[in-house]
């Protein structure tokens, strides 16, 4: 049981770490990577909590959700990366304009 909690807490840690990086970094690639780390944390929590039951086999429903989620995360990342390259091609910057005058 205790190692399941350890995995779940590790997932929470990854999520918060990703959230910190998402807020603190302006570079879009770092933001995309940060969102991926956050997603990985969520997947880790789901997979860990699926095995909470003491003597039953792990719950297959969260596992199925994670498998679906991973593929969706990959395709969303690909779309985000193309958008980032387009922003770079259009503005020459890898950051979004924050509305302040230059």
């Amino acid at each position: 049981m205790s190692y399941i909690i350890l995995y779940a807490l590790l997932g929470v840690g990854l999520f918060v770490l990703g959230l910190y990086a998402l807020i603190i970094h302006a570079h879009l690639l770092r933001k995309i990577l940060a969102i991926n780390v956050m997603g990985t944390g969520v997947f880790l929590v789901l997979v860990a909590l699926a095995a909470r039951h003491q003597d039953a086999p792990p719950d297959p429903v969260p596992h199925a959700m994670v498998i679906t989620g991973i593929v969706v995360a990959v395709s969303a990342t690909a779309l985000a990366l193309i958008l980032m390259l387009k922003v770079y091609a259009a503005t020459g910057k890898t950051e979004l304009h924050d509305g302040k005058p230059d």
């Binding site: 909690i5 807490l9 297959p60």
Partner: peptide, 20 residues
């Protein structure tokens, strides 16, 4: 936020009524 999420994970019951 991390403490709150960790508390939420720890507070979950160890024998849930899942769909398993």
């Amino acid at each position: 936020i991390a403490g709150w999420l960790a508390y939420a994970v720890l507070a979950l019951s160890s024998s849930p009524a899942g769909l398993g």
